[in-house]
């Protein structure tokens, strides 16, 4: 790891002036579980690390107030998983509880989960000059892409977005509170993400001198919601594919359906087609299956990840059934 100067401001206000207007020289440290990995691989070589761990109060709290629950960006994943304030959002708490192992959940934060960089093994290898490191090509396109994107249209770089919290949060209609030199802005969570294609872009739309400080979830009459993911192992593992589903039950049918896919595209992916397949219908094995088919319809897999298209169908179906309260048919 390249050495650096270290700052630990006590407030976001004190953190802001320490940030640069450009990416690269300065990095924010939240839980450290992503940043330290990148530094050890020399993929990130900041001269300055600004730790957010000294910021307390609301930054580290989950607060239910009025029609919303606000989660500070510094809240640990373990605390989200076990939060009573978030009990109405099993899609979120369940997904948080599935992330890696307890140690990571004790270290990693909400902000870190949303702002972490991708896990592409070409990006993470210092010696591979990929697009995101200023190179000329994406090595995954005709390389080893078992874990890469299957919704690849228009994307020169075919990473998958690594956040497992983003899909449920988007499905739940969450917004991000972002603080920067010009003040505060509120961003619908799906707008927080972008597909990066060059060195100067991140997987999110924050400016280099902005800080994500909180995420707010509308809590008035929470929808039915669930997240389902396929992991190869029960041990610390990235999901192969994930789906979060939220809808409001109206008599027997689903309304305001939201289906968001994770780990299949460079961004968390809102599936309008899957939502449409369920909208106004009772959630049954048949409609959930149809939603899965609809979600997978636009997929354009790479040489080595066609199997993930089948997984998209499965996770959407299962997440929809879980949200509807059906008994998981896949468990003995």
């Amino acid at each position: 790891m390249k050495n650096f100067t270290y700052h630990r401001p006590a407030t976001v206000a004190a953190a802001l002036p320490l940030l640069d207007a450009e990416w690269g020289k300065t990095e924010l440290l939240a839980g450290g579980t992503d940043l330290l990995d990148r530094q050890k691989e020399y993929v990130s070589q900041p001269d300055k690390v600004v730790s957010l761990t000294g910021i307390g109060g609301a930054f580290k709290q989950i607060a239910a107030a009025g029609d919303a629950v606000t989660i500070g960006a510094g809240v640990k994943l373990a605390d989200i998983a076990e939060s009573k304030e978030l009990a109405a959002f099993p899609a979120l708490t369940g997904a948080a509880g599935e992330i890696a192992g307890p140690q990571i959940r004790n270290m990693g934060t909400l902000g870190g989960s949303l702002c972490q960089r991708n896990r592409c093994w070409y990006f993470r290898d210092e010696h591979v000059p990929c697009l995101l490191k200023g190179g000329k090509k994406c090595f995954a396109l005709d390389g080893e892409n078992e874990y890469h994107a299957v919704f690849t249209q228009g994307h020169p770089c075919v990473i998958v977005h690594p956040s497992t919290l983003a899909p449920p949060l988007i499905a739940l209609g969450a917004t991000a509170e972002v603080v920067g030199p010009k003040g505060t802005r509120t961003v619908p969570l799906e707008k927080l993400f972008q597909a990066p294609a060059k060195e100067t872009q991140r997987e999110h739309t924050l400016a280099p001198n902005e800080v994500l400080v909180a995420v707010k979830i509308p809590a008035k009459e929470p929808p039915r919601n669930a997240s389902y993911e396929v992991k190869q192992r029960e041990t610390s593992e990235w999901p192969l594919v994930q789906a979060a589903v939220a809808f409001r039950p109206f008599v027997k049918v689903a309304r305001d359906v939201r289906v968001v896919l994770g780990h299949v595209a460079p961004t968390p992916l809102v599936s309008e087609a899957a939502a449409k397949a369920l909208e106004g219908k009772e959630v049954t094995d048949a409609t959930a299956t149809a939603a899965g088919e609809a979600a997978a319809a636009g997929a354009k897999p790479l040489s080595g990840n066609g199997y993930k298209v089948a997984l998209v169908k499965t996770v959407v179906k299962r997440a929809a059934l879980l949200a509807a309260g059906a008994r998981p048919y896949w468990e003995g």
Binding site: W121, Y122, D125, H127, F139, D142, G143, R233, T235, E237
Partner: peptide, 23 residues
């Protein structure tokens, strides 16, 4: 291994997978 770069893509314990207790 990646045939173009000639490098192993998973020289780690993240994508070189070993089971844990629950597996």
């Amino acid at each position: 291994f990646d045939k173009h770069t000639g490098r192993q893509v998973n020289p780690d314990m993240e994508f070189y997978k070993l089971g844990g207790l629950r597996d």
